[in-house]
């Protein structure tokens, strides 16, 4: 039995992580793939950290990704990717939105010690590189805005995911899933997804 393909999705409450998961899962259903998730969003709308363990493959029994085995971390916010990096396999990929949302705790600490700089994308990618993972920053916000739906950052990230070599779910199934899941703004979301596949990971 092959190892499941693990995607650790993360972000901040309200960024549309659950919808991202729902679209990918619906595409898995179309393709007849086994998929299972463990979702942490009980307090999702309170600007807190949220995560979804997304697993594809016959060996995916547990809803949680075993430590050090995820193929990719997909973060809708840059800092959050570091919070879940223990799930990533050695040499795995981190797709991170270039968006940084400063937690209230970080700003509170900076008022007390103004010399401490804010975290930024560069610091996150440095840390990720130092532990031999492959960070791929994606301008989800900019790409979403250009495709006509500013809130479609999640679909841009999904596009970037789908463009990874060896990604187990086909783009046509994902596009079909976007059609099925979204009640409105289907075209803009499709466009965001397509832009994500084209622009997000120019290296591939």
């Amino acid at each position: 039995m092959s190892d499941p393909y693990g995607i650790l999705m993360c972000g901040v409450g309200g960024q549309g992580l659950v919808v991202l998961s729902r679209v990918l899962g619906t595409a898995c259903a179309t393709e007849g793939l086994r998929a299972v998730t463990g979702e942490q969003h009980g307090l999702s709308q309170r600007s807190g950290s949220v995560s979804i363990h997304f697993r594809i493959g016959e060996g995916a029994f547990s809803p949680l990704i075993p430590l050090g085995t995820a193929e990719v971390i997909a973060g809708l916010e840059a800092l959050e990717t570091l919070r879940y990096v223990e799930y990533l396999r050695k040499g795995g990929t981190v797709l991170l939105s270039t968006l940084v949302m400063h937690p209230v705790t970080e700003t509170a600490a900076r008022i007390k010690s103004p010399a401490i700089p804010y975290w930024d994308v560069e610091k996150v990618t440095e840390r990720l590189t130092a532990i031999e993972t492959r960070p791929v920053p994606v301008d989800c916000r900019g790409i979403a805005a250009r495709s006509g739906a500013a809130v479609a950052e999640n679909m841009v990230l999904l596009g970037a995911l789908a463009a990874l070599p060896g990604f187990p779910v086909g783009r046509p199934s994902i596009e079909e899933a976007i059609n099925r899941v979204f009640a409105g703004a289907v075209e803009a979301n499709l466009e965001a997804f397509r832009q994500g596949t084209r622009e997000a990971v120019p290296g591939f």
Binding site: G48, L79, V85, T105, E106, R127, I131
Partner: peptide, 16 residues
């Protein structure tokens, strides 16, 4: 490895 990478990362508790 992750603990080293995430050292000093601010927590993000749910908030108002």
């Amino acid at each position: 490895t992750a603990a080293v990478a995430a050292e000093g990362l601010p927590s993000r508790p749910p908030t108002f």
